[in-house]
Design a protein around this nucleic acid. Structure first.
Length: 196
DNA sequence: AGCGTGATCTTT
DNA sequence: AAGATCACGCTG
């Protein structure tokens, strides 16, 4: 299946969050280790109009990546122990990103099991902090993009609308009413986070 | 249901 | 300089 090109990322954040479902996230590590996961859960974050976004007050040192070109990776560290992975959206100098919240393991599963310290497939990448661990992603990947040899997305057929569900975003206190979380129906790898 | 753990940001 | 917050995960 072909790789997704820059054009794919040039759509409004909310649409991108939905179109990313089903696509295959690929990381190739030195030693020709291929890690692949199917994206099953995402959340949209915007700029000034979104109080839950890191960028809602404007540019800072941490969030500057969110203002870069679509298709850039925004990785940050939180709660003292987790890295979270986002794909930047919106044109350059305009903030936006899609948080990747869960994936279904596809390739490189032994590596992921080693990283996560468990063999249970539905526990490898069923949460935003878990999947970065499974893929060995940390801040050194912040600012890289999806157009090189290390990170890219593989295309997949668009999901039927009936398989895509929507809810409030998880784990935030502001703007909780916005239905900006997208996830796949009945997929056991979707996170158990409570979308109150 | 509670808490670890540390960067980031706001307020003094 | 100090304190609050945080796009989480694990234990119990």
């Amino acid at each position: 299946m072909e790789r997704l090109e820059k054009q794919f990322y040039q759509q409004p954040t909310l649409e991108l969050a939905e179109k990313l479902l089903g696509k295959i996230f690929v990381r190739i590590l030195p030693g020709n280790i291929h890690l692949k996961g199917r994206i099953v859960e995402t959340e949209a974050y915007l700029g000034q109009q979104d109080q839950a976004s890191h960028a809602w007050r404007g540019r800072t040192q941490r969030n500057q990546i969110m203002f870069q070109a679509p298709g850039t990776l925004y990785v940050y560290f939180t709660y003292g122990c987790h890295y979270l992975l986002n794909i930047v959206s919106e044109p350059e100098n305009s903030a936006g990103a899609v948080l990747i919240r869960a994936m279904e393991p596809v390739e490189g599963i032994p590596f992921m099991q080693e990283q996560r310290g468990t063999a249970i497939l539905t526990n490898l990448m069923s949460g935003p902090g878990k999947l970065t661990r499974a893929l060995a992603i940390d801040c050194s990947s912040n600012g890289k993009d999806l157009f090189g040899d290390e990170f890219f997305l593989e295309n997949a057929p668009q999901l039927p609308a009936a398989m895509i569900l929507t809810s409030a975003r998880v784990g935030i206190s502001k703007s909780r009413e916005l239905p900006w979380r997208k996830f796949m129906l009945n997929n056991p790898h979707v996170s158990k986070g409570k979308a109150t």
